[in-house]
Simulated scan of single mutants.
Amino acid sequence: MTAMETMKLPNGLTVSHVSMGETALLYRDIFAERCYMQHGITLSPGGTVFDVGANIGMSTLFFHTECAGLAFHAFEPAPDPYAALSANITAHGIDATATRCALSDRAGTAVMTYYPDSTVMSGFHADAASEAALTRTFLVRSGFEEEDVEDMLAGRHETVEIEVPVRTLSDVIAERGVTSIDLLKVDVEKSELEVLRGLSEADWPRVRQVVAEVHDLDGTLKAFVSLLDENGFDVAVEQDALLADTEIHEVFAVRKAG
């Protein structure tokens, strides 16, 4: 495990992190641009949030500061981000249970590809070449010079294979007696459809809202949206202008009234 450091965010909060640059980008997307609070997504005191692919907990921290009285279940399989996640939950007094595991459509163990210098890209379906190209596109469109981008990417796509525990959403719901999930946030680098498939038919009605990053590979986006539609959600799909014409989309789903 690498040594954990802290940094002060522009809003004055201090967080434990793995990568300063990565955390700055997460802050921009989650806090500054409020990427999750679109298309009718709401938070209410007393609600329960599942943060699947929590990384260091920036989403959990944002939701916590956005709405008092939320309870969280945060899931992160990689050791270093999980350590930061746990530290951030404690430091900010968040009512959260952090679990070092991945969620999927089956329980057991699996080998994930971990990027020590680009932790948010870690996952079960890693492709270093395509992910390097995607990162390059994003950084260039963000205004960085090509030469600077190459320096920033140097070494960032070295990987380590790690074995991690895997559970399903319905396993967790049953074990913890969860009666409702007011917001299910999913950011799991190409495993998002498997996460939804880990919900049993009986548990789908417990979910009120879903917000997810979806990688549209081999029809995943269509399958993901269809599964939400079949289970009673109004669905909206967005794409960040910096990621236009790439595989990455944001999906927002709110359960239909009645």
Rank of each mutant, 00 (worst) to 15 (best):
R136I: 08
Y115F: 15
T48I: 15
R28A: 15
V140P: 01
L9I: 07
L134T: 03
E175I: 12
A83V: 06
A74G: 02
V18K: 09
A91Q: 13
C35S: 14
G53D: 03
K256V: 14
Q209T: 09
F62I: 03
I173P: 05
E201A: 15
A32P: 07
L183T: 10
Y114A: 00
F62E: 01
G93T: 11
A32N: 13
S170F: 09
H39L: 00
G155E: 07
R28C: 06
Y27L: 03
L199G: 01
L228M: 05
M7Q: 10
E22M: 09
A24C: 07
A74E: 01
S44R: 14
F144P: 05
F72R: 11
V186W: 11
E33Q: 12
T119K: 04
G57Q: 07
T135H: 14
A253W: 11
R28T: 14
G143Y: 04
G258P: 08
T14C: 07
R34T: 00
V120A: 15
S44Y: 12
L242G: 04
K8V: 13
L9A: 05
G46Y: 02
T42D: 12
L221M: 07
E247C: 00
A110V: 10
N231F: 10
F62M: 05
V120D: 11
P79W: 00
T14H: 06
M1W: 02
D234S: 09
V149R: 08
D95R: 13
F144M: 07
R136M: 08
F75D: 00
C101K: 06
D234C: 04
G93F: 07
E230Q: 14
I181H: 02
T113M: 02
R28N: 12
S130F: 02
E201L: 15
A78H: 03
L169W: 01
H215G: 10
N55L: 04
L184S: 00
D240V: 08
E238N: 09
F50V: 10
R208E: 11
L9V: 10
C35I: 10
A91L: 14
H92E: 05
P81Y: 13
F124T: 13
G143T: 08
G155S: 12
T137M: 05
F31E: 02
D117V: 03
A68Y: 01
E33N: 09
S19R: 14
L242P: 06
L196R: 05
G46T: 08
R176I: 04
F144R: 12
M1T: 01
M20K: 15
V164Q: 03
V149D: 09
A212L: 09
